[in-house]
Computed example of a mutant assay.
Amino acid sequence: MILQIETATTSCSVALAQNGQVLAFKEINARNMHAQVITVYIDELIAQTGGTYASLDAIAVSCGPGSYTGLRIGVSTAKGLCYALDKPLIAVETLAAMAGGAAAENGIDSNTLLCPMIDARRMEVYTAVFTATGEMIKPTAAEIIDTNSFSDILAARQVLFFGDGADKCIDTLGHNPNARFLRNFVNSATHLTGLALEKFNRGEFEDVAYFEPYYLKDFIAGKKAGEN
Rank of each mutant, 00 (worst) to 15 (best):
E93F: 01
V159H: 00
I73G: 11
A96N: 03
L45P: 00
P177W: 10
G194R: 14
F161W: 02
D109N: 13
Q48K: 09
V159D: 05
G64T: 06
D119M: 00
N178P: 01
H34K: 02
S67V: 09
L195R: 13
I137N: 01
Q48D: 12
A60G: 15
A84L: 13
V159Y: 09
F130T: 04
Q18R: 11
G163H: 10
L71H: 03
L56C: 03
E124P: 05
L85D: 11
L56R: 01
E198S: 14
E135D: 15
E212T: 12
A78W: 09
S55D: 15
P116M: 05
E105A: 15
R72E: 08
Q158H: 14
L16H: 02
V125A: 00
F150C: 03
Q21L: 03
T193C: 15
G51V: 07
Y215F: 11
T127I: 01
Y41G: 00
A54C: 04
K199V: 05
K199I: 04
G134W: 06
D152Q: 14
R122F: 07
D171N: 13
L160T: 04
Y83S: 00
Q18H: 06
Y214D: 14
K199Q: 15
N176K: 01
M136F: 06
E204C: 08
L216N: 11
G66N: 02
C115D: 10
I220K: 03
G165C: 09
A24T: 09
G74I: 05
G70K: 01
N106V: 04
N228D: 12
M123Y: 04
Y126D: 00
A78V: 08
Y53P: 02
F205W: 12
A8W: 05
I118R: 01
L154Y: 10
I153H: 03
L195T: 12
N228H: 11
F211T: 03
M123W: 03
D119I: 00
M117C: 15
A99Y: 07
C115M: 13
G100E: 13
V22A: 05
R121G: 12
I137F: 05
G107H: 13
S13I: 08
A99L: 09
A196F: 10
T127C: 14
Q4D: 07
Y210K: 01
K87G: 11
A155L: 05
E143H: 04
Y83E: 09
S149L: 06
K138S: 13
H191R: 06
R202Y: 12
Q21V: 12
V22Q: 05
S62M: 03
T49L: 04
I170R: 14
V37L: 13
L71E: 12
D152L: 10
F211K: 11
E105K: 14
S67H: 02
T172I: 15
I90F: 14
H175M: 10
K168W: 04
L192R: 02
F181T: 06
R72C: 11
I90Q: 02
T10L: 08
A142G: 12
F162G: 06
D43W: 01
N201A: 05
S76L: 02
I153M: 13
